[in-house]
């Protein structure tokens, strides 16, 4: 992806988040943003990138949305409602854009939506993937995915799922829902392995991108930091997990020089920050990341500090007492 495409994609997500709030309609906002993105990709490489790319995209997308609303009102023989939101895009402060993105995160991962709808919506709106890309990534026919996305957006509109950040009291449970959705996306890609189509393994990178976005939006939340750390540490071993013929190589046999030292370092640092936030009761993602770090930092399988691994598993049991944890093999297999 070239620099312009990356910039357009990143800013497109922010523009979409704002436009959903302004129009109150996910579909309309998505079409209008898509239109602006296409125009940007056509004109920017030719005429140069505007000074304020986000403002350019937002103005273009808003104009498009207004056009659509007017046209539909005319078709219905009605006067379009007064729209005063076409004015100055500079009004959208950094704080507003930050909040709009958070609203989008929590709306996409609303517990009233099925988990598969959440995953699809997050990839489509926050990740900026096309419906076809989401479908291929999740191994679902494109028509099925299109229907799933339409149904989810319909439910948001018709059941009036709010576009807002949850109250502090409900934040922890809502946040763990968001983390679960992103981690599911990561595992879809990570578990796909080497032989799988690129679009599928790309989901791991996509989940890390979403994790970074969450960490940028909520830099003080241990859940978010732990999730990002866990994904980085697991993904650091990715190249060493697969042999030349696409077969899975287990942890003891992996060539550790092929692990990504930059990702490991970043993951370990994130764990440190997260642990300092809540030293008494670490978040479950932080603990899982710490276990991954024990493996990532060991020079060889024989030199793994099993004592640390076991004590982190004990912590995990105390913060997250589920049968799955209790039966997890303590050696770790990948």
């Amino acid at each position: 992806m070239d620099a312009v495409a990356r910039l357009v994609r990143e800013e497109g997500t922010r523009v979409l988040a704002t436009l959903i709030r302004v129009t109150g309609n996910v579909d309309l906002a998505q079409d209008a943003t898509q239109d602006a993105v296409v125009r940007a990709l056509e004109t920017w490489p030719r005429d140069g990138t505007p000074d304020n790319p986000r403002a350019w995209l937002l103005v273009t997308a808003k104009r498009r949305a207004v056009d659509v609303i007017r046209r539909e009102a005319r078709r219905a023989g009605k006067e379009a409602a007064a729209m005063d939101w076409t004015t100055d895009p500079q009004d959208e402060s950094a704080e507003t854009i930050h909040d709009d993105l958070l609203r989008l995160v929590f709306t996409c991962c609303h517990p009233a939506l099925s988990l598969e709808a959440q995953v699809a919506l997050a990839l489509r709106t926050l990740g900026g993937l096309s419906t076809g890309e989401v479908a291929r990534g999740l191994l679902v026919p494109e028509a099925t995915m299109a229907k799933r996305l339409t149904r989810a957006k319909q439910k948001i509109r018709q059941a009036a799922i709010p576009y807002r950040v949850p109250e502090p009291a409900e934040l922890p449970s809502r946040l763990s829902g968001v983390a679960a959705t992103v981690y599911l996306i990561f595992n879809e890609g990570y578990a796909a392995g080497g032989g799988a189509a690129l679009v599928r393994t790309e989901l791991a990178a996509e989940a890390i991108r979403l994790g970074r976005l969450l960490a940028e939006l909520m830099p003080d939340e241990p859940t978010v930091l732990g999730l990002l750390a866990l994904m980085l540490l697991q993904n650091a071993r990715r190249d060493a997990r697969v042999g030349p013929s696409g077969d899975l190589i287990l942890l003891p046999d992996q060539d550790r020089s092929r692990w990504n030292p930059g990702a490991i370092k970043e993951g370990v640092q994130l764990i440190g920050v997260a642990l300092r936030r809540t030293p008494d009761r670490p978040d479950s993602y932080v603990v899982q990341a710490a276990i991954a770090a024990c493996h990532a930092l060991a020079p060889s399988y024989a030199e793994t500090s099993w004592e640390s691994v076991v004590s982190w598993y004990d912590v995990l049991l105390s913060v997250n007492d589920t049968p799955v944890v209790r039966f997890e093999p303590r050696g770790g297999d990948q």
């Binding site: 609303h110 009233a112 059941a159 009036a160 799922i161 709010p162």
Partner: peptide
């Protein structure tokens, strides 16, 4: 209700 959250 204002929205689904309140209804729930």
């Amino acid at each position: 209700c204002a929205d689904l959250d309140e209804a729930v």
